[in-house]
Simulated scan of single mutants.
Amino acid sequence: MRFVGCWDVVRRDVVRRGEKVTHRRGRGQRSALPRGEKRTLRVLASEAKRPLADVVAGRLGLAIVDARTLCDAGSVWLDGRRQRDASRALRVGQRVVVHLPAAPPNPASLADRRDARGGGFELAWRDAQLAVVVKPAGLPSIPPREGGPSLAGGLRGRFGDAATLLHRLDREASGLLLVSLGDPESRERLARQVREHRLERGYLAIATGILAAGEADDERLIDQPIAARRGQAVVAKGPGSKAARTRIRVLARGAERSLLAVELDTGRLHQIRAHLAHLGHPLLGDARYGGPEAPRLALHAHRLGVAHPSTGERLEIHSPLPAALRQLLPRAYGERR
């Protein structure tokens, strides 16, 4: 498991660009940032002695093979000199400049985006087969029992009855969701990726308290079964419980809160919320699981990776952290700038 793109997506200087969509050819290859740019990095203490390609890949959200290719192509400069050695060990404070190649534009037109906002959601990506949309906090993914608006209803209103929402987010959370727009065969290919846990989903979360470091590089695996009881997830073993695995990486600590990158090996009801509450670190704004008051639930699905159902091309889409959550970051995030 490798955490991708989470560090730069929350940064203010990337928020504007985060709404762009990038894609590249090659199954299984990741590309997390808009292209056609020059990116400048300073080597952090935690990155000292690590290979150049590893740091470039981690900071820019690239597959390691892409980072090595950039080095080999002469697109990476170290302290003012072109550096083609991808394995070069780095020192604290060194300046790394990466020249990223250009990429095709987002096929979702401006008109598409305006229409989507009228339906209560934002459109991050769209072609004839699929769409990736950004659900706002407070909007349920599917129609609630009591009636009212939902993302699924807005999708049908915008794209017609063929629009099928393939997975969900909690009402209180925000972020990226995959929608099928094509024929039944295309829809089944996308749905199979969801069922087989091949759909890559990355989250940003702000938890209460200072999380301890994991075994390596602040990464940690939470492997605790979850049972659903009366609409709430409970960490418990025994009848009715299902295996649940959550991987977290601490991006920053401070002000009695921790900024986390989160990835799921499984997809259970309220999995992230229940696992973090079980550790004694509920999310900000998560009153249901014991979290303190906040403007909203501090959970955002910021990254989604999917293989295109027609071409097999790997698409990776990003959504920046919403403004309401960025306001909670200054002290927690500032310690790692």
Rank of each mutant, 00 (worst) to 15 (best):
R30Y: 09
F121L: 05
R88K: 15
D85L: 07
G147L: 08
G154S: 10
L130F: 08
V132W: 07
H23T: 02
A53I: 03
A53G: 00
A102P: 04
D112V: 02
A32F: 04
Q29L: 12
L90Y: 07
P149Q: 14
P51Y: 03
G157Y: 05
G26L: 10
V76G: 01
A48M: 02
R24M: 03
G61D: 07
R82A: 05
V43H: 10
Q129G: 06
G58L: 02
R91N: 09
Q29P: 00
Q94S: 10
R91K: 15
A89W: 06
P140M: 09
P51E: 09
K49C: 03
G58C: 02
R126C: 04
R114I: 00
A73H: 13
L33H: 15
V21M: 13
R42C: 00
Q94C: 04
A63N: 05
L52D: 07
R91F: 06
R59H: 05
R42K: 12
G93K: 11
R88N: 00
S75K: 15
V133C: 09
A124K: 08
V134D: 06
L151I: 04
P34V: 04
V132R: 07
L123I: 02
L139T: 03
L33D: 03
T40D: 11
P136D: 12
S31P: 00
G119W: 10
S150M: 09
S31R: 14
P143W: 12
A128R: 15
A102H: 11
Q29T: 09
A116R: 01
G138F: 11
G157T: 04
G58M: 00
P34H: 06
A102Q: 13
P104W: 07
R158C: 05
V56P: 01
L123W: 07
T22Q: 15
D127G: 04
A111Q: 14
R39S: 03
S31W: 11
R158W: 11
K135L: 08
P144F: 10
S87E: 15
S75M: 13
R50F: 03
